[in-house]
Amino acid sequence: MIYNIPYLAVAALILLGLYALIFKRNLIKMVIGITLIESGVNLFLITLGYRKESIAPIYTSSPGGIMSFPVPQALTLTSIVIGVAVIALMLSLVMHIYRHYGTLDARETRRLKE
């Protein structure tokens, strides 16, 4: 069980983000919850690619020994950049909502008409 602490950290991050998504009403806080879930997923990918006492998969000035997996790291890199783009789009939408409704409360922003 002591070997599963990184997975427990992943579960804690994802649950924190889910808590913010379910119970918070502020749109900015909901965006923060989505970024927390995304961090948890990135940590999970990195965790899956680690081998015991391994070094980074780079040969320049390498001390030798087994290397950790390069594919999960590359996919995490892709995921981080996509996350930045999606967060920018979400925050732009939140700015538009605030300009339109005058509030950030998710309960108040349900009107479909003016």
Binding site: A56, I58, T60, L77, I80, V81, V84
Partner: peptide, 12 residues
């Protein structure tokens, strides 16, 4: 292609 990093990280 030699050290940790690349286009995405340096651009960021």
């Amino acid at each position: 292609h030699l050290t940790p990093g690349g286009g995405f990280q340096g651009g960021a």
